[in-house]
Structure formats: C-alpha cells, structure tokens
C-alpha cells in the first residue's frame, strides 16, 4: 500500500515542467524516503519474495516424495489443475459458500449496523456484545460449532433433533455457512456502521420531508450515500470468505474448498508444484475479485477506510 500511494507522485511531477523544489523541501523528501526505506524493504522481502517463489515453484514438477524428478515444466501444472474435476468442484463449492455467506452477512450486518447506529442507551455495550463472535479465534469457534452439532452430545443437534447436520451434504453446507455468518457478521456490521455515520441526519430529515417513508429513505438515500462503505465491506468479506479454511476443515473434514485442496496437495501431499499452482490460482482469483470491485463497482481503494482484518 505504501508503494502504490507513493508512486503516482513522481509520475505527475515528471509530466509537468518539473516544479522547482526548494533545497529544504528536497532534503525533507530525501529524508522521508530514507526513513521509510527499511520498512518498505522488509515489506517487499516478506510479501514479495514468497509470491515470486511460489510462482516459480508452480512452474516446476516438484514433489518432495520424488525430489529427484524435479524439473521445469512451465505451465503443465496449470493445465493439470485446471483440467482436474476436483479443483473445479472445490472452486464451485468455495464460490457458493462465498456468495451465500457474504449475501447473508450483508443483510444481517446491515440490520445489526442499523440497530447499533440507532440505539442510544447502552451503545457501547451493544457494540461490544455483538463483536464477541468476531473476537473468537476461528478454529476455536469452529470446534465449538462442531461439538454443538455432534450427533451424540451436541446441544444444537439435540435441540433440533437432527442427527446428521454435519453428515448430510446440504445441511452440512448450511451449517458451515451459519458458522461463517455467525463469526463475521459483526465485522460487516462494524464496517457498515462506519458507513452509516457518513449519512448526515439532515439528509434523512430532508427525505422524510420530501415524502419518503422509512424503507424509501433506506433504499434511496442511505444505501446510495453509503455505497462506498458497503463495497469496501463486501470486498473485504468476499476476499476473506473465498479463502475459507478453518470452518470447513473442522466441521466437515472431507469437503474441500480451494484453500483446503491447496493444503492437501502442498502440506499433506508434499507436492510443492501442484500446491503452488493452486495457491497462485487462488491469488489470481482474489486479485480478479478485488479488481472487479474496484474497477467495475468503483469501490474506493481500501486503505482510506478502516481496514482491520483478521
């Protein structure tokens, strides 16, 4: 982020006949570069190198069980993965979970945000309480869901007298979605609430005077005005949800999202080539999602907004 923020400046300066910088200004700028250089270098090393390395690995046949047979195969791994049925099943499942859970989160998060925005008494308490699920480590939450749904001891399965919430495919899917939604709705709500605060009270009063009822005020004024915040929230959540791992791993061993497949190949299967290929593909998908949000929907680039993530 630091880099992208800095880059345009020199480009602009180069276009115009260079504005004369005073001696002090130039020294100040040089000092600025020097001061942020160590951090920038570490950033590049930490984030840049693994990316480059995994792209490199993805173009090799590299299985740790047969280290002698390693060779450079260029795009062969990609052809293998993209031609594999398992990959596309996992991809479809991941996409489905992402879309369904993000939509539910958006709706619930919006309701929660509106409630939190409107409550006057105990505002702090309401916010804190609603944030608790988000504060729990995903794996821990996933295990507590698993025990709750356990067909012998789980209180939820006892309550609903359904024995196989995690065994039947459809209900397992919804159980996972529920766990995801439960966990991340507060995050959505928090981002949306920041957006709600951007809608001036006068605007709503004006809309009321103009004849808009509560629903029209919501759809015609609140939503369009806070659209940037909604898009940022959606973007964050979509990117996050697409990388779903913990809940699936704990709740429904056997099903696989793209992240789990990657894990299976890379860590369990020790196949560095195929695993890296998958992670590069996830990277590309995530980049495409971000690109779509920013370019097509015109999301303000995150960074100007609160960007707290896991």
């Amino acid at each position: 982020m630091t880099e992208t923020a800095v880059k345009p400046a020199p480009a602009k300066a180069a276009k115009k006949p260079k504005p004369e910088l005073s001696e002090g200004k130039r020294a100040e700028r040089r000092l600025g570069w020097l001061l942020c250089a160590p951090a920038a270098l570490v950033m590049v090393a930490v984030t840049g190198w693994p990316i480059i390395y995994s792209v490199w690995l993805s173009m090799q046949r590299y299985d740790l069980r047969f280290p002698n047979q390693s060779e450079f195969v260029f795009l062969d791994n990609y052809i293998t993965v993209l031609g594999s049925e398992y990959w596309w099943t996992a991809f479809g499942l991941t996409t489905l979970i992402t879309v369904v859970s993000v939509i539910i989160e958006l709706v619930l998060g919006m309701c929660l945000a509106l409630i939190m925005h409107r409550t006057i008494v105990g505002r702090g308490l309401v916010r804190t309480v609603s944030l608790i699920p988000y504060g729990i480590v995903t794996v821990v939450a996933a295990f507590s869901w698993r025990y709750a749904w356990d067909d012998k001891t789980g209180y939820l399965s006892a309550l609903l007298s359904s024995e196989s919430a995690l065994i039947d495919q459809t209900s397992a899917f919804f159980t996972v979605v529920l766990a995801e939604v439960w966990k991340t709705t507060p995050f959505m709500a928090l981002l949306l609430m920041a957006g709600l605060a951007l809608v001036p009270d006068d605007l709503l009063r004006a809309a009321a005077m103009d004849g808009a009822g509560p629903w029209q005020r919501f759809t015609k004024v609140i939503v369009p005005v806070m659209k940037p915040a909604i898009l940022v929230a959606l973007l964050f959540r979509t990117l996050d949800a697409f990388r779903i791992f913990d809940n699936l791993f704990v709740l429904t061993p056997g099903t696989s999202s793209v992240s789990i497949q990657t894990y299976n190949n890379l860590i369990k299967g020790l196949n560095l080539g195929i695993g890296s290929t998958m992670s590069v593909l996830i990277f590309i998908t995530v980049a495409i999602i971000a690109f779509l949000f920013i370019k097509v929907f015109g999301t303000a680039a995150p960074g100007s907004d609160s960007g707290g993530k896991r």
Partner: peptide
C-alpha cells in the same frame, strides 16, 4: 401525522442535497 403526510417542504441550513443525484 408523519412529515410526509403533512405536505410541507423544508429547506435546511446544510441544504441536505442528495449527493448521489
């Protein structure tokens, strides 16, 4: 009566124009 049923228009100090329209 709700504001919308009173048939009254209001002009605000902040103008309260809808920024997206």
């Amino acid at each position: 009566k709700a504001p919308k049923d009173r048939d009254i228009a209001m002009v605000f100090q902040s103008y309260a124009l809808y920024p997206h329209m």
